[in-house]
Amino acid sequence: MDGNYQDYINRVVQMTLPSNYKQQVKNIQSSPKFVDGKAIDFPGFSVITPPEKEETNNKKFYSYLQEIQTQITQELPENLFLPVPPQSFHLTIADLIWDTSYTNAVKENPDFDNLLISEIDKIFKEYAQLNPEIDTLELEVLGLSVFPRAIAVCLAPTEDSYNPIIKLRQLIYQNEQIIKLGIEQQYDFVGHITLGYFDKVEDNIDREQVELVIVKTNEQLVSKNLPTFELSQWELRKFTDMTNFIREQNWASIKVGN
């Protein structure tokens, strides 16, 4: 599914154009992952960068995203936007399985977790053998995007950084055992860091005001000389909800660069 580098740039740039915010804001919906401002059970697995609280390379980057997140929260209508804990900020490399698909898989096969953990470990080892020397990957901020249920900062890898990400995704999604576990690619890659989710989207919200807040905040975001996001490690993580991403020490992990 994932296209070439130019396909990626064309697609994701469109998602961050202020001229598209009006239509995006029309489509916002309350996220089912939160109820009354609290994250509800939403279990699954994904391949992500270490969450902010465990990060070492992107502290300044995440610090500024937290400022942007606070500004959006304060300026949007009350109870509309629910920020995620900044300590949970991360970049998703590959979605694997979640929600009812995951709970049903575990019911059908109580050993599901162990099988998935083992297979991802094999894939990561294969990837490391095929790509023994990869520099730290770099991604630059493109701007804010309004998803139907969330607001995120979208990122663009450099061309040299894009291909290693896509190669990993191909190894995962084309793996026969992964497919047998019921996991399939459902989305093209979109490098993004979620700032928060829509909580209570009332029928009478002032959507023009929402759009203006997003436009203004995006202007501030892209005018800053932000450091690039350094992707130096990705890991298999299990999540219990959209704020809690955990892993055991022996689960698959890859470090790139120095």
Rank of each mutant, 00 (worst) to 15 (best):
D111N: 15
L91C: 00
S30W: 02
I40N: 04
S46K: 09
R237T: 14
Q69A: 08
T70K: 12
M1R: 05
K180V: 08
N27D: 10
V25H: 03
T217V: 15
E133G: 05
K60I: 10
Q87C: 10
T240R: 15
N4I: 04
Q71T: 12
Y21A: 00
I214D: 07
D111Y: 14
V47F: 11
W98C: 11
V256E: 07
T217Q: 12
T136H: 13
L80A: 08
N79V: 09
F42W: 15
T217H: 11
E219L: 03
K255S: 03
E78V: 08
I151N: 09
I93F: 05
L91G: 00
R237V: 12
S30Y: 01
L65Q: 06
E133Y: 13
A156W: 00
I28M: 08
S30I: 02
Q69V: 04
L142F: 01
L212H: 15
F189P: 00
E54K: 07
L221F: 13
I254P: 00
D95H: 06
G191S: 10
P86L: 01
N175M: 14
Y127D: 04
L155C: 00
L65R: 00
L137K: 03
I246L: 14
K255G: 02
F147N: 07
D188C: 09
A94L: 00
D95W: 05
Q249K: 14
E140R: 11
D203V: 00
V25K: 02
N58F: 00
P157Y: 08
V213Q: 05
Y127K: 04
E211N: 13
Q177D: 11
N244P: 02
P86H: 06
V190H: 02
I165D: 03
P43T: 08
E55V: 02
N58R: 06
D160G: 11
I117A: 09
T240L: 14
N20H: 13
I134Q: 14
T92W: 02
V12Y: 02
L17G: 07
V35I: 14
V210E: 04
I179V: 08
T92A: 05
K60H: 03
K38E: 12
M242H: 10
L236I: 07
I179W: 10
D95L: 05
N27C: 06
S145A: 10
Q174A: 11
R247Q: 13
E52L: 00
P18K: 03
K26I: 03
F112K: 12
N109W: 07
Q6K: 13
Q87V: 06
K180S: 08
L171S: 12
G37I: 10
P86M: 01
T73G: 12
F189C: 04
